[in-house]
Design a protein around this nucleic acid. Sequence first.
DNA 1: ATGACGGTGTGGCACCGA
Length: 260
Amino acid sequence: MKIATWNVNSLAVRLPQVLDWLAANPVDALCLQELKLNDEKFPFKELEAAGYHSAAFGQKTYNGVAILSRTPARDVVKNIVGFADEQSRIIAATLDSPAGEVRLVNGYFVNGQAPGSEKFEYKMKWLTALREWLRSELVAHPNLVLVGDFNITVDDRDTYDPEGLRETIHHTTEERLHFQALLDLGLTDAFRMFEQPEKSYSWWDYREFAFRRNRGLRIDHILVSQALKSQVSSCVIDKLPRKNERPSDHVPVVVELADA
DNA sequence: ATGACGGTGTGGCACCGA
């Protein structure tokens, strides 16, 4: 079973690229973030024609997440249970596959703007609420995969300028402690289970030829629960879509789970 | 350097992202 995550930065703009990518990468599930459209404008029909069911949780202009899957998603949950949120940032669903029954949690984590800002405080509260909800979600669903745009670099390997960007947004100790707290729930960063190329990133700024110069960050992650860890057979970043015309600033990350 | 680029919504710019 292959699961991918991709922040598309507007599904309206990127739908042709998503369809092209799925044709070349027929994954079992694709988790999207930053749809930037409401559910009335979600391209259910086009994705169905490509062979995918869609569970969508959209929002006008900002945020918005969706799970595309070969088999229908069951028990769909939108946003963090018990945490009132105006913004559409989480969609969770259960998928049946040869790898077993998998609970998939797809998140567009809060950006946080800058340490000390109101948005940073929202990010901290959101991360705490996510963790507490996931704690119970893991009890109900031991086979769990948490994917998405985390807006957090895990360590110095995940950033093009660890010294210059130390304690700036996406690099603060506070954010990294929240990431560690997710790992402490029994989750594992699938990408780091394997040897990876040096300077592997999932996002590059549109400005200053950042992609060409490989000045990027690894902020899109796939975390797998303890019960699934032994089934993880690969995890890769696909940089190719960043070379497209009108690319998203993020690229897909793909994990493969062996059959149970 | 409160910049840069790109998306959205509104309207000739502001806001947001990371």
